[in-house]
Design a protein around this nucleic acid. Sequence first.
DNA 1: TAGATTCGTGCAATCGATTACATAATTCAG
DNA 2: CTGAATTATGTAATCGATTGCACGAATCTA
Lengths: 345, 345
Amino acid sequence: MKEKVTIYDIAKALNITAATVSRALNNNPKISEATKTLVMETAKKMNYEQNRFALALKSGKSHNVGVIVPFINRNFFSSIIRGIEEELYPKGYHVIICQTHEDAKKEEETVQNLLNAQVDGILMSVSKTTQQVRHFKKILKSNTPLVFFDRIKEMDGVSTVTINDFQGGYMATKHLIDVGCTRIAHATVDLALPIYKHRFEGYKQALEDHDIAYNDDYLITTKSDIDAGEKAIKKLLKLKNAPDAIFSASDYAALGAIQQLNVLGIKVPDDFAVVGFSNEPFTQFMELSMSTVDQSPVEMGKTAARVFLEQMKEPNLKIMKKVELSPELIVRKSSSKLTANNKQI
Amino acid sequence: MKEKVTIYDIAKALNITAATVSRALNNNPKISEATKTLVMETAKKMNYEQNRFALALKSGKSHNVGVIVPFINRNFFSSIIRGIEEELYPKGYHVIICQTHEDAKKEEETVQNLLNAQVDGILMSVSKTTQQVRHFKKILKSNTPLVFFDRIKEMDGVSTVTINDFQGGYMATKHLIDVGCTRIAHATVDLALPIYKHRFEGYKQALEDHDIAYNDDYLITTKSDIDAGEKAIKKLLKLKNAPDAIFSASDYAALGAIQQLNVLGIKVPDDFAVVGFSNEPFTQFMELSMSTVDQSPVEMGKTAARVFLEQMKEPNLKIMKKVELSPELIVRKSSSKLTANNKQI
DNA sequence: TAGATTCGTGCAATCGATTACATAATTCAG
DNA sequence: CTGAATTATGTAATCGATTGCACGAATCTA
């Protein structure tokens, strides 16, 4: 139907060469103003659109960036992607989405695939099962900017955008202390992953700063789901000196905890306070809304995108930027209790 | 660093021409088996990867598909995208994500942009504010397959994947009737949009089939948020013959309704039953879990992708396929009541 | 006014893969 | 054993945009 208009068509129409048209469109200073405007105008008139492939083939730049996440239908990740898309789209970049399903092998394959597609950059959150860094090195070797967000792997030459998980853990724990809890448990997911390790360290530090001894029995490792949270509560309540609060590194486990506490007839927050982590949408919709730590994922996505753009501006310079965003404690009902010493927050 | 290997490199290594290499790699029957295997092997040995841009430039096919949704961080849409990605990725397609923010103008711009990027197809859910179909016609004119999912616009030459919203509305309403409700209200969002219109029609049909007169006072138009649901309940309860149940076309409005009923001390589900629509994740996490209609979004995404792939197989044939998926009623606490005539479902 | 600059364009190669057409090598029919 | 048919490969154009180099024309210098 509608044949694509090329610079040759414009050239023919104006009786000049394609080279001149190209230069005019690129605002090359060697072209006279007269020709420039003339070319611009006819280009517009003829509905000219630059062919991305020809450009990509010539320049090696695709104006695409690859984004790799474990799953895209997890609020945290889809919100990050939203942030990335909003930041990059106006700059003419397209965002290519890939999921790893937390599978290290699929991650490697995906990376290879995106490199082959010659994306201009890769923004990603590392899969839980990833051990190797070979594929990341390949990215760097191919001179493609690489930005990790949230789940990172410490590597030379890679920029990272994270939230301060230590601070998040600290805030959550301190808040529980502030509302009068003294026997605070912590549910973690996998201490081998930096994000969880840092939350745990924040938890420990908050205890220490408030002269509460760390109790190893109060540390429990769970999966990030409701079931795991239920089991964790059952286990914790069997202790002779059972806790009166829990800071869970996962909102889902926290939800399971609350549900189980309900079943057992234990009053939340009065007899047992709960704080989660991530600010999943459901946490605010629960009847007993859940206190949690917000990670501002949209902002994280935007930041990651901006870091990428900076890197693109300085193609020679190897920038390695580490941005750390601040988490925000969101106090809701599951931990809002009035005590002798504390006002409701 | 690592220079890209091209077919010319392979050709040089084997002392043949690039044409032969190309043909061998494409399994052209005119090439002898001997050369084929030889080429294949050296290609593998040299880590050859086909240059997508050269191919795209030559063929006009990008092996990219554009996906346009209002927002990507809405569970429904991100799940659809997940389905699309899972179906298309193994076939060598990359998925380019764009959001419209429900803005018709941004939608037009995005379409133009994707066309310019020469995507091989566009899968999309139409923005709420879209009136014009000019940009859709442009897609068709450029001979690019177009598939609408969920939010469609009736047009010639466009394939659609929807769920049977009528059936969903019918099932939800019939279920409420089955548990003994007789004065069933309906909260809709915008009857101008087919999805909501069909849900409403299903609602009406279910009433009619069970000899319940349709009452115009029970129809209420709300936005799709919690606030709107609260207001709707307030308004409905002011009626002299107040309803005893509501089928809301939005889970969010249904949530608002439940919260407001709680505030007013009205027992859910015994005194007032509630069914939502969409099966948003939060509906199952609420203490009083919400009955709702599931739209199997991942399946919808996969189906849309498959329809696209079929279209690609028959480039000459103009296929126009209309797939309708069945919704599934999910009964949870907000409508599970025991009545004289009904067993608990 | 001759020679040197500057300015604006054109020429042609390039990016990497595909493919119609040409050609060389082999096989086959009679 | 010769011409035709078949098979395997090479030649060169093409997709669309960019860009180093060349070149003619205009302007300037002394």
